[in-house]
Design a protein around this nucleic acid. Structure first.
Lengths: 329, 329
DNA sequence: TCAACTCGCTAGATCGATCTAGCACACTGC
DNA sequence: GCAGTGTGCTAGATCGATCTAGCGAGTTGA
């Protein structure tokens, strides 16, 4: 059962391959009758376009790579969704893969994608191991998302510093908490440092307020539970916590409830919709992951069309105020 | 800036294209010196393998398509993760896209993927609009996941009926609830019908117990909140609810808490890790979405290798008992 | 009436790999 | 000394599209 090719279609319609090709691409000068006849032959034979072959000739693949940390993290899945949709809008299909913050995986996957080859790549750089340097020799538009690239690739991501300031200000200014903790996030990752810097700067503007501790760790449910346990067992004196993700906030609130600790101020990051349903509902710094994905794809589409966008974009964050920070609402 | 091809490498190393090709594929009879020399030329020139070109010749693309309802749904993102990993294990890259249960989208996306072409496709059939019929003429292994295909494609998914029985039995047998409601899920979808049938059958074994109502709707956070509202406003008399997903259960528990309703039995479906952190923690029928994804990819890899698997596989569900059903635990 | 142009179409090269057939040479066995 | 076998390598066709150059017929303009 051989594949039906343009050659077959052309023979069936009594025209040349070139004419048939013009029909599928809707270009060239052909009479309407000829176009119609070719289309009928396609239907009759059940022709399916072979993009791979076309790509070989045109030197573009219509494929964009997206390398993220972990799709099962709601932040990334929302981002993936936005990315995929915007890419499809521009006529590109998306290949997604997860690095799990492993440098080896990141390199293997990027290599694999480039071999296809992909026309452009968006990626969340693995902590302290940047792809950008390795890919400079490679002529595809690159974009670092979510985390800044040490190798100097253009960046698009949330305004982490601004988000940290929002969280910090709300806790120390609106609620008068004084001893803050930053909980979670991978050690050494840019966004974590930026958010902490924001929290610290916000605290510094109020006498007596400070960031008294920081604990790093992965932000899955299991990781969050470990972090919460660690924080509680540390006997650190604190009255408010900024969590690296909403999921970590859920885990912390769960752990505090279990030991019967009286309410403290807790703020998460991500702005997941589930946060509204939690008890207490979780105040969160929302960064709009889906929109971020959309913008990332659009940035790359622009670059492919010859209009490179800004080399650095920080998307504004805003605070979704609910109960966990201490607001009754 | 032209791409470096095998031709260039061969010329640089003073051998033929065929010899260079043998080096990248690690086949054929070549002396070790020659292999070494070719490898050095590759490094020197910065050669990157062009899979697209190779695929044209070998008639396989190394690409598997995965068409799901919505990646931002935690069930699907976990499944995607398992799928992607297993596919990568077998040397395939995954192309993921979302149908959002729209027949037109489903068809366009499948078409697009087939054009690349993909070597195999796993998909969650859109309710009442199956791809299988349209793809029979197409010689790629097909697998329906999560929902059965009306068109007769092989199926792999959770044992929905069994899961429904588990939930129903626990509510009527262990807890003695009598008036059950099934909440959420798309109208007319196979899994929803199967689960309800399970709940109904379990109730039928206990005098006085029955499924008194069913409400359908999408299972996002917003959809769950609408469903909960609808249920409460309906004035239906019920004492237990089986929810089509954990997220719907969150929304229902949230709504019940807001109106101050005394505790009833609530069980979700999916077994999301977050369910443990919720308050009350959510009892759930777990179906292991990640493993499901893994198995789906393995099924397709098997089919590609000429060993088609079972045409129907129902993966066992189990109950994760927590507080929301009424168990203190 | 003839050059110039447009229209509708085609032949053949091309993208970058793989694969088949086969060639030259060396070695072995009788 | 010659058939037979094995080793190491190459030429050329091939996958299925696109793209360039150009051809014949008809139309237009001077």
């Amino acid at each position: 059962m051989r594949r039906v090719t343009l050659q077959d279609v052309a023979a069936h319609a009594g025209v040349s391959r070139a004419a048939a090709s013009m029909v599928v691409r809707n270009t060239g000068r052909l009479s309407d009758q000829t176009r119609e006849r070719v289309r009928e032959s396609m239907d009759a034979l059940g022709y399916v376009y072979h993009r791979g072959a076309a790509n070989l000739r045109t030197q573009r693949s219509g494929l964009i790579g997206l390398l993220i940390t972990d799709v099962s993290n709601p932040f990334f899945s929302a981002m993936t969704l936005g990315f995929e949709e915007a890419a499809a809008e521009g006529g590109y299909l998306t290949m997604v893969s997860d690095t799990f913050d492993d440098a080896g995986r990141q390199e293997r996957l990027a290599q694999s994608m480039l071999e296809y080859p992909i026309d452009a790549l968006a990626y969340t750089p693995v902590v302290s191991s940047d792809l950008a340097a390795k890919l400079t020799s490679y002529p595809v538009p690159l974009l670092a998302v979510t985390r800044q690239s040490e190798g100097g690739a253009p960046y698009l991501g949330p305004d982490d510093y601004g988000g940290g300031v929002l969280a910090g200000e709300h806790l120390v200014d609106h609620h008068s908490y004084r001893r803050l903790v930053y909980l979670g996030g991978p050690q050494g990752a840019g966004p974590r440092d930026e958010r902490m810097r924001g929290v610290r700067d916000a605290a510094a503007r109020h006498p007596g307020a400070e960031l008294v501790a920081e604990l790093s760790g992965i932000t899955s449910v299991a990781g969050g539970m470990r972090l919460a346990q660690e924080l509680i067992e540390s006997r650190i004196q604190f009255d408010a916590v900024v969590c690296h993700s909403d999921v970590v906030a859920y885990a912390l609130l769960h752990a505090l409830r279990q030991i019967g600790r009286e309410p403290i101020g807790v703020i998460g990051f991500d702005g997941l919709p589930e946060s509204e349903l939690f008890w207490p509902s979780v105040t969160s710094v929302a960064v709009g992951p889906q929109l971020l994905g959309t913008r990332a794809a659009q940035w790359l589409l622009g670059a492919l069309a010859g209009h490179p966008g800004a080399a650095f974009t920080a998307m504004p964050a805003h605070l979704e105020v609910r109960q966990s920070c201490g607001c009754a609402n």
